[in-house]
Nucleic acid binder design. Structure first.
Lengths: 204, 204
DNA sequence: ATAAAAATCTACACTGTGTAGACTTTTGCC
DNA sequence: GGCAAAAGTCTACACAGTGTAGATTTTTAT
């Protein structure tokens, strides 16, 4: 969306605009934290980034585009992490590891993740981004369930459907917990892990 | 919030305003369905209800108040239902009954429930309303879990915490399913029921 | 029939968004 | 070093939506 190709591939010189773009996104994140999406105005973001509204519109076409870019930045980060964390483990420790990673993700990026969820319907692009992210999780959960002996398939008591429900459980539970504190997040994690394990029949 | 005491206690005559207020809420619900909250303007609602913007502000102080009233109206309905559906049953059929009731609720009121969830953060009053509703569900789920032999308490593997996570699972799963179709809702229900049962150790 | 209450309207002030066009700075090249 | 193009920035404006004020009409109750 920016008016110029975003410098990703290690450009020789870093354009002034790249710095500004980052400043805009950072400011947006900060404002989101203590004003919320609705209360935050484009003017606020511009001011925080040290430019005027007019200048901001050179980088992003709208308020929604700014937030979409912020979500994209964060979510790319999640994708990398999930690519790294491999899947060659036994079910039980795999579940524990996955939940631990989830706690870390929500600790670090809870605000943006909550924003992404909130805007998923109203901003289609963000909806896409978040759906894709959720799908990654669902696939991962499905794999663990199958390795634990749950039958693969889409019937209500088979891996795929269960994974989807478990994913939403984790999303929503962490969504709420991350608004409170790190401790709540840890408790939420323990509960979700327990239910995930019983669903995989690993609590005999 | 209306400019006059809302006629609840079977007034002898029904004020013209009561009809209008209902018309406003009905219009709001209809518009929410095919425009969404953001795109829907106060002018649209007024027009749909057959009055001007100015007149609408006689009934409600803001767009948010209109939607809050709509949520309140719907949610009161849920509360009645949940009060009626008693709790004197064995765990297994109780779970089935609860899920069936949940399907009905989401079939009938999915749109408003989704709206309530979406606006929970930005509109504190709606947040209150929805929290209260969720608490009713959590208490009910807790009761069922305990009757199924799950230890009461707030530790991660005890009834209270589990009930909360299961509630969020159901909320989020139905939230998504209700955007698609009745069939999806039914499938979602079956999956949630299965996970709820395994969590209660009722799948030997 | 009439006065108070309820309901409605028009007009306005304000805030926030997004756009237009002029102006300034930076960059790459001869 | 000088200079054109690209990149970045600004001010000013047009527009849409919200909420308010006050005048005016309709309903209701006596």
């Amino acid at each position: 969306m920016p008016g110029r190709p975003s410098a990703h591939g290690r450009r020789p010189t870093e354009r002034k605009g790249d710095v500004r773009e980052r400043a805009i996104l950072d400011t947006c994140e900060a404002l989101l934290a203590h004003k919320g999406y609705d209360a935050m105005t484009v003017g606020d973001v511009a001011q925080g980034a040290g430019i005027t509204r007019g200048a901001l519109y050179f980088y992003f076409g709208s308020k929604q585009e700014v937030v979409t870019a912020l979500v994209a930045r964060t979510v790319e980060h999640l994708w990398e992490r999930s690519r790294v964390t491999a899947q060659t483990e036994e079910p039980r420790p795999a579940i524990t590891a996955a939940m631990q990673r989830t706690v870390e993700l929500w600790s670090a990026h809870g605000l943006v993740m909550r924003t992404a969820i909130d805007l998923s319907l109203t901003v289609p692009e963000i909806g896409e981004l978040w759906n894709h992210t959720a799908d990654l999780f669902i696939v991962a959960i499905t794999a663990v369930l199958e390795r634990a002996g749950v039958q693969g398939g889409t019937a209500p008591d088979q891996a795929s459907a269960m994974a989807r429900a478990l994913c939403w459980m984790i999303e929503r539970t962490f969504y709420h917990a991350s608004q409170e504190s790190r401790e709540k997040l840890q408790e939420a994690s323990a509960t979700c892990e327990y239910i995930w394990r019983t669903s995989a029949r690993l609590i005999p």
